[in-house]
Design a binder for these strands. Structure first.
Lengths: 396, 396
DNA sequence: CAACTTTTTCCACACTCAGGACAAAGGTCG
DNA sequence: CGACCTTTGTCCTGAGTGTGGAAAAAGTTG
């Protein structure tokens, strides 16, 4: 099968392609309403896009009171691969050009096994998706890794939780293997892009997206664009100090947010509570499973276990404390909380909200929604697809 | 005298005008090197600018090895007014089109006297500048106020330290009085723009500018543009909590940064130290002046007073703690510290740096300069002039 | 003074794009 | 079902924009 070769030749074409991506099939007339080009100019550009094959005719639209318009849509055979490498598992999904997830696979895996092993897994999952008939090939791939990335080159830099990846040419390597363009970003940024594209953050220009998984990170969106900082480490809030005399952290400091509240910290606290006899619920679960995870805390809390609720409340307070600072500083229009521990759900949300509304000034919190992400594990892969799609739909 | 009436007609003209503003007089050929337009196109646009009167001929340039080029420059009679309203004084300056300060006046004044009294003062200072022959009129004015501003309308919103200004139509009123376009912004944002235009932050795209005066604020520059947040309160870091059991703050919370370290807090601490006999230096100064200010702390520190040095070190630690969090979050390329207390100078800088380098991760701090602003009180007024200049040099 | 540069002007040609005229296609109402 | 309206798509013209070459103007260097 022939893959996507063409790229938009100018800003007008890029604009049209994005409208088709985000709004689905559309008639020429509807497009005309949105772009402020003369009918003739629009017709020319659409014709050129049809010639390139990026866009195809798609039947007739419903009448709006007169002659029916011809629909057009992005080529239905285009496929993007979205890859989300987490600390403990990889997600791989295939989407169409409109970034709808056609198939999604997850595989538990420790990122510390290193880039070679992980890529082997990613490629095998991608092959599985291809074999199931969802795609004959990929026109582009986005990939998220749990650490800072030098974005232009697509290379992880000094990632604390994934030694062995430092400087590994992720973009280059994957592009070689897949034979298509690849873009790499931090997993948290991709989650933010996912929620922006298809989740709760649609139509919000400036927002924060806090992801709590094994670690804690924060995606920053400014004017609809992800902000990555000078060295690509923006949003690295896991090592903000929340208690000068707090717990030691893997980074060498004391009292980091991550040391007090994260998937890993929560699991350890739950195990401690179980062993110290403070929670029969945890003890029972530890007995059965051999170890505890954030999911156990969520389940125990749902069952009304006091120790679990305590852990969530305390953690939510710590997190809320940091978010309150960020809200004062950044004045976002929305705060999204996502990641593995969102199972803690509304208990967590409640204590975060309490803390933020208490500590930040009314002008910043007045109309500030603090909500859970609505896409769950697909946020990352949708964001990844969006990343490469944004790249490919830019003028060459 | 005829004031500036024309505005650039298109993006090319705007580009050229900004080059002339930031680079001073320039030859057509030099401009050509910078803008990537064909010679003919460039000539046409320059001719049009000359017609409008925004730009004038300015003699011959030095030869670059062949025929000498005709210089052009922004109309030398253009004048911008920069106004910086602080908590305890107002600064008013007049600049030419290249944003060079031609005259600068300062007048102590309490912002709480309200907008009417303050404007009376501002207009009187502006009249004085005009009377001294520096300007015959103003082509635009920028004005900074010490609180959040709804930027598009130029109206302060819920400013904590300036009751009576809430909702006052600053832009509208001043524009009426001065008879020229006016833009209003937070004073901290203007300081950031000033340092960006003519100070330490030239050529840095993403940076933070922390201003410590009566209160504490932080200007945020993203990709060369000031970021103001969803409701215009971005950068309001004075009420970030640095100590859950800390001092009560005017905002109603406890342990706000501002309650522990700011011009006002410092003065109070110094007076306490004097009264409690912990510092003969402070006691002597209090005796003489009747009250103490941040400047006294600076002077005492310079004289080697232990209590003063303690205050600075402790305050610097608090501030450094907050800046460390912001650095982790925002990953700036530069942190500028300015405002009234910069007299504390390198003592302050040292403790801030220590704290930041200790608490933030190497990837973010690796190549992060933390420096004092180099413009002092002119940063605000230059920023104000820059604000209105940016506005007027945008295509209409 | 001759040879070489740089700057500026002039001009012809290609290209872009808006908007009007008109044809095609469908709806609506009597 | 047919007259009349609206909407959509196509074609065409004219105004304007922008490029690049040629040549003149103005200097420099040896």
């Amino acid at each position: 099968m022939r893959r996507m070769t063409a790229r938009p030749a100018n800003a007008h074409q890029a604009r049209l392609l994005r409208l088709l991506r985000d709004g689905g099939p559309n008639s020429r007339a509807q497009l005309g309403d949105q772009v402020d080009l003369s009918r003739s100019k629009l017709a020319v550009e659409v014709d050129r896009l049809l010639e390139t094959g990026l866009v195809v005719a798609d039947g007739l639209a419903a009448s709006r009171g007169g002659r029916r318009s011809h629909n057009i849509r992005l080529a239905p055979e285009l496929r993007f691969l979205g890859v989300d490498i987490g600390a403990t598992s990889v997600d791989v999904a295939v989407t169409n050009a409109e970034l709808e997830v056609l198939g999604h696979l997850n595989h538990p895996m420790d990122v510390r096994e290193g880039p070679v092993a992980v890529f082997e897994q990613v490629l095998s999952l991608a092959a599985k998706l291809r074999a199931s008939g969802l795609a004959e090939g990929f026109d582009g791939a986005g990939i998220g890794v749990p650490g800072p990335v030098r974005f232009p080159e697509g290379v992880p830099v000094a990632p604390p939780i994934m030694p062995g990846w430092d400087g590994f040419p992720v973009r280059e390597a994957l592009s070689q293997e897949l034979g298509c363009p690849v873009m790499v970003d931090n997993d948290v940024n991709l989650m933010a892009m996912g929620e922006q594209h298809a989740g709760v953050a649609r139509s919000v220009g400036d927002f924060l997206c806090v992801k709590i998984g094994t670690g804690i990170g924060c995606g920053i969106v400014v004017g609809g664009e992800v902000y990555r900082g000078t060295t690509g480490s923006a949003g690295d809030i896991g090592h903000i100090q929340v208690d000068p005399d707090g717990r030691p952290c893997a980074c060498g400091n004391k009292g980091c947010l991550e040391a007090h509240f994260s998937g890993a910290a929560l699991a350890r606290d739950a195990e401690d509570a179980a062993r110290e006899g403070r929670s029969p619920e945890f003890a029972a679960r530890l007995e059965t499973a051999g170890r505890l995870t954030a999911a156990d805390v969520a389940a125990a809390a749902a069952a009304g276990d006091a120790a679990a609720l305590d852990l969530i409340r305390e953690g939510g307070n710590r997190l809320g404390q940091v978010i309150a600072s960020l809200v004062s500083f950044f004045n976002p229009g929305l705060v999204v909380i996502g990641g593995g521990v969102t199972g803690l759900g509304h208990n967590l949300l409640a204590s975060v909200r309490t803390q933020v509304y208490k500590q930040s000034l009314p002008l910043a919190t007045g109309n500030l929604p603090i909500v859970l992400g609505e896409l769950g594990p697909t946020a990352g892969v949708i964001g990844a697809a969006r990343l490469i799609s944004d790249h490919l739909l830019s003028p060459a």
